[in-house]
Design a protein around this nucleic acid. Sequence first.
DNA 1: AATTACCCTATCGATTTAATAGGGTTTACA
DNA 2: TGTAAACCCTATTAAATCGATAGGGTAATT
Lengths: 135, 135
Amino acid sequence: MLSKKTKYGLKALAYLASQENKQPRQISEIAEHENISQKFLESILLTLRKTGFLGSKKGKGGGYYLIKEPSEISMATVMRVLEGPIAMIACVSLNFYEKCDDCPDEKACSVNRLMLKVRDSNLDIYRNNTLADLI
Amino acid sequence: MLSKKTKYGLKALAYLASQENKQPRQISEIAEHENISQKFLESILLTLRKTGFLGSKKGKGGGYYLIKEPSEISMATVMRVLEGPIAMIACVSLNFYEKCDDCPDEKACSVNRLMLKVRDSNLDIYRNNTLADLI
DNA sequence: AATTACCCTATCGATTTAATAGGGTTTACA
DNA sequence: TGTAAACCCTATTAAATCGATAGGGTAATT
């Protein structure tokens, strides 16, 4: 299941991308508009700033704003930062690969094969959708 | 992430499907062959029996066996029983639909749109793969 | 009658999740 | 220059879930 962290993060990014001008938007404004706990959203936006998606401005009139164009923000990178691995199991993950303890031979594993198909198709979607496609 | 319950359940089904004859296979045999905790596997096989995938035979020479042909067992139904919803968020789920608390209008929701694409593609994979395709 | 093997319930430690609390620090602006 | 606005950061917590274990009960075969 998609975590609320990811859900809220995506909504916040979409909200920022839908703004006409690029003025900073306050946490409180985003939280209210998207019905998100303000404190929780605060930590999510912090993550998105540290990972290079958002910039921030302190003090009066401050807030968060997008650093890149929405069309240049791939859902694959956003999902990896907020949700973690795109693959459903580590043995088919590109960025978070890990071997299964119980599996002597991945190539002969039925679960591996099925989940590889799922990962491929999901990766395809995430790579071919940008923030601009969400709004 | 895929739960170990689902992973083990799929492996057990695949193991049973790969057998030449249809004699019952003991829990201990499956557990050993697939490197699964026997007690944990026991509860999983019980679930699969109650949901109509497996039959069981008690007493000496007993065990579990497939009720249907592997080619008639869709991954979609298996996944729903073991893992739960195929959708990553309830508001795009066919079998486990729920409205989001925070979302006033699903049709206008960016997360909803993205996750709908993901669900469609995953559903497509699960519906078009049977147990026979795993072995 | 004894053994085999499935059946069922309860419990538990570890981890994760979502949220809350409580402040600290920086900046803009009057 | 001081004060309020708004981001920054750490710690804590309640609840849920997961994976596994324990301990026995029941049915069927030989």
